[in-house]
């Protein structure tokens, strides 16, 4: 790797952020190095946006420290090499797209020309339009483009493809990969596993404000790769004693189990000769997968 890989661009150390009684971020320690493409994965309300807002200097941690380019992100000078996306609903309705691009670009010493940016992110035909007249997908593309207008070293993309159709999503992923290949460090948050799988090299999973996993994509995928098994049985206790059951839910006759390995579970189910009927197996949704991760972490601890 290049020398930049050893440089720390952003760092949280024992960072905790409370809102009244709620702990949005709970004692998080991690660092983002130059050249990385990090996926920040977690359900809504997990603390992803809070973490980004700390890195952007928009909020201060309740305790612990947050560093951006070696200083406090609340110092505007530290943010000169940082690019962020606004929420797509944020763009001021009455301003034209070109005006919003110029306004944001005015904050950076070395900006991408409006035409080049519009060309890259596919909104050349929208430059004269007021932002209020754009569709959600158009706003989203412009919001992502704004993160790159100042030629940043570190880009924080918060849910960059929410509300985009498949084509637009893939187009944007390509753009993100291209910028990463050109040396930009990128952190992308998502609650879509698919998106993180398509983009990230390193994955940080957070839930309830805590880091559940921080590893390579392959390692994290293995850990959240779980399945849901449904069946009816007279002997629920025998069933629950089987290995690999992370979570169970009894609804009348039927039992729903979350297991970390469906194949291994079915094999041991048959081998244990537990009577059952109406077996169905499906891949776990991301929410169920997160639950697996949380619970297996707890049982491991």
């Amino acid at each position: 790797m290049t020398a930049t890989a050893h440089t720390t661009f952003a760092r949280l150390e024992n960072a905790t952020r409370r809102f009244g009684e709620t702990v949005a971020l709970d004692d998080v320690t991690l660092s983002i190095g130059g050249g990385e493409l990090v996926g920040l994965l977690g359900p809504n309300g997990a603390g992803k946006s809070t973490m980004l807002s700390l890195l952007q200097g928009r909020r201060r941690p309740s305790s612990g420290t947050v560093e951006l380019f070696g200083g406090s992100p609340t110092d505007p000078r530290r943010r000169a090499r940082l690019g962020s996306t606004p929420q797509e609903t944020a763009l001021p309705d009455t301003l034209r797209v070109s005006e919003v691009v110029d306004l944001v670009a005015a904050h950076f010493p070395d900006r991408v020309p409006t035409d080049a940016l519009a060309d890259e992110f596919g909104f050349s035909d929208l430059l004269r339009r007021p932002c209020g007249a754009l569709s959600g997908g158009q706003k989203r593309r412009i919001a992502v483009a704004l993160a790159f207008v100042g030629r940043p070293r570190l880009v924080l993309l918060d849910e960059p493809t929410t509300g985009l159709d498949v084509d637009a999503r893939h187009g944007l992923w390509q753009g993100i990969r291209r910028h990463h290949a050109e040396g930009t460090t990128i952190v992308v948050t998502s609650h879509y596993l698919e998106e993180i799988e398509a983009l990230a090299e390193r994955v940080i999973v957070i839930d309830s404000g805590a880091v559940l996993a921080d590893d390579t994509l392959a390692a994290v995928r293995d850990r959240v790769d779980s399945a849901v098994v449904e069946l009816a049985t007279d002997a629920p206790d025998d069933l629950l004693a089987l290995p690999g059951v992370v979570r169970s839910e009894v609804g009348g006759e039927r039992i729903r189990l979350t297991v970390d390995d469906a194949d291994a579970f079915v094999r041991s189910l048959v081998r244990a000769e537990v009577p059952f009927s109406g077996l169905s197996v499906r891949g776990a949704s991301l929410e169920e997968a997160f639950l697996t991760l949380t619970l297996s972490d707890r049982s491991a601890a």
Binding site: S53, Q56, G57, R58, P76, R77, R78, R79, A80, L82, S84, T85, P86, Q87, T89, A90, L91, P92, V104, H107, F108
Partner: peptide
């Protein structure tokens, strides 16, 4: 949400 975004800029 526009104002919080401006606060993330070097402003």
């Amino acid at each position: 949400p526009w104002d919080p975004y401006l606060r993330s800029l070097p402003l």
